[in-house]
Design a protein around this nucleic acid. Structure first.
Length: 507
DNA sequence: CGCCTGTGCGCC
DNA sequence: TTTCGGA
DNA sequence: TCCGAAAGCGCACAGGCG
């Protein structure tokens, strides 16, 4: 995500020492030289933003678009072919043919229908995803990985589109949009417990294996495969796994650990082959197979192009793929919610995605991130003929403040976590200081600990001691001030496409 | 119930 | 958050 | 350009104890 320039993130973290006392609410950082910015801005994918900065600046981060794969090197998944072996009942196949892993053909010649080894009306088997993850783990290049993901997404789009959201969530290794704050609450310790119970091993044994193998996923795989199964468990489906993950996240209160553990055990017991391995890695939220957000988004874009039967393949397939990836990334940066993007994508395709799915107040947009620089000269070079601005980098916490038409305020962190409950003082201040003519806005800011008496900025260390949840206004011990450095939306108008200087003027 | 610990998490 | 290495 | 790894700190929560 990321896009929009923020004239703020600088490298250093001690800038705050430099004084500059502002009072709370706004008050912009200390500007130092520099005239106006030019910034390109906004969230578009590969836009290069020109950012302002000071001695230690970082320029806005551009969105990176990955080079996509050219179909000539892509591979394609031939999963299918296992229909025969699969026969076992009208159930989902337990194991897809291994040829699924040989994604050596071109994406262009890939046939999603053949790749699907599960029957019509059936859900996507978890094995399908597990096998793909396994195949991905054996690759190292972005191109190959993107191709594999693209092919699996096409397969799902073609045969079981209703499962696409769940598939994408698993691939993204998420259980909900970041701003919803849903957490698994599961770590290695709990996993080890569940694993030892599910396999009838001692915890010490699991830990020992963990040390040897270096990966709990492998431990799970090894443990499970050495167990003799009484009967073949019913095949797991992607939806089942995803739903269980969400259930785990929702357990809380007394005995919740026990319940979470039982959910994990149930999944493990039903998992075979490489499923346990990826089940565990997903729970750890550490897939570490070289597949992450940007790659997934690109693959989603590519898959959508192939799935688009309307506009027959454009003359230049490669550039279309690139363009589609760019669009998806762009859209995701503005509204990082797969639950919105996927349905829109399925219904109206990629090309219209920016129209069918766009910024929505209350949903945090991907923040423009800072990028470290080696020195001033690099900056002067880069902005040679461009206006730019320099600002302090305050040592606080990034915050995106949304003010909705109904008067609701939401505050999000750099990673889109909802921080509203942590800053009732900010919410209060916002509501009090907002001009009546302003009906809605989104501000990009830095919240910094501030000592009102001494009128001094406090270091991050101090800010970090603030309570984090359900904070009561009257019990706040560490005061804060806000440095707003960008505005992304105002009175119903998205400013994501506007240049930084014009956005600054709005303030 | 209060207190401590282990655990998970998000932040820089 | 920064820094690093690999592809 | 992208991914994954590594680094410390403090709060929240669940579980277990007296």
């Amino acid at each position: 995500m990321a896009s929009r320039p923020s004239a703020f993130d600088l490298l250093m973290s001690n800038a705050s020492k430099k004084k500059s006392e502002q009072k709370q609410q706004k008050s912009s950082p200390k500007k130092r030289k520099t005239p106006t910015p030019i910034i390109t801005s906004q969230n578009s994918a590969p836009i290069s933003v020109k950012e302002p900065d000071s001695a230690q600046i970082k320029e806005a981060q551009l969105e990176k678009d990955m080079k996509n794969d050219d179909s000539s090197k892509v591979k394609d998944a031939q999963l299918g072919k296992s229909e025969e072996a699969v026969v076992k009942k009208p159930k989902v196949a337990i194991t897809p043919d291994e040829s699924f892993l040989e994604l050596k053909d071109k994406v262009a010649s890939f046939d999603p229908k053949k790749a699907a080894y599960w029957g019509k009306g059936q859900r996507v088997p978890f094995m399908f995803v597990a096998k793909a993850l396994d195949a991905i783990s054996k690759e190292s290049g972005q191109i190959a990985i993107t191709a594999i993901v693209c092919n699996m997404l096409r397969t799902v789009m073609e045969t079981t589109p209703e499962d696409l959201v769940a598939v994408v969530y698993l691939l993204a290794n998420r259980i909900a949009p970041a701003h919803e704050g849903l957490e698994l609450g599961i770590g290695d310790a709990s996993i080890i417990k569940a694993l030892s119970e599910a396999c009838g091993t001692k915890e010490a044994q699991i830990k020992k294996q963990y040390k040897e193998l270096g990966d709990l996923g492998l431990v799970a795989k090894a443990s499970r495969s050495s167990q003799s199964l009484m009967r073949k468990p019913e095949a797991l489906t992607v939806v089942k796994v995803f739903d269980t993950f969400r259930l785990i996240a929702k357990e809380s209160g007394k005995d919740s650990q026990e319940k979470k553990k039982n959910h994990i055990k149930a999944l493990l017991v039903a998992a075979t082959d490489c499923e346990p391995q990826y089940l565990i890695r997903l729970l750890q939220a550490k897939l570490r197979i070289g597949l992450a957000e940007q790659t997934l988004l690109a693959a989603l874009g590519h898959a959508a192009v192939y799935a688009d039967k309307q506009s027959s393949t454009p003359a230049n397939i490669d550039s279309s793929l690139e363009e589609a990836a760019k669009i998806v990334k762009q859209v995701y940066s503005v509204i990082p919610v797969y639950d919105k993007i996927i349905p829109a994508l399925l219904a109206d395709g990629v090309w219209d995605l920016p129209k069918t799915c766009s910024f929505s107040p209350g949903v945090p947009v991907g923040p423009m991130l800072a990028k470290p620089t080696k020195g001033v000269s690099e900056i002067l070079d880069k902005f040679q003929d461009i206006e730019f601005t320099c600002e302090y980098k305050y040592d606080g916490e990034r915050a995106q403040i949304h003010y909705m038409e109904d008067g609701t305020v939401e505050i999000y962190s750099r990673n889109a976590e909802r921080n509203t409950g942590k800053y009732p003082d900010v919410v209060d201040a916002i509501s009090r200081f907002k001009r009546p003519s302003v009906t809605s806005f989104v501000l990009d800011c830095e919240i910094v600990a501030f000592d009102r008496e001494k009128k001094k900025i406090l270091p991050f260390q101090v800010l970090s001691t603030r309570a984090r949840k359900n904070v009561v206004l009257s019990e706040i011990k560490v005061g804060v001030c806000i440095y707003a450095f960008d505005i992304l939306y105002i009175n119903g108008q998205p400013l994501l496409q506007a240049q930084l200087d014009s956005r600054r003027q709005v303030c």
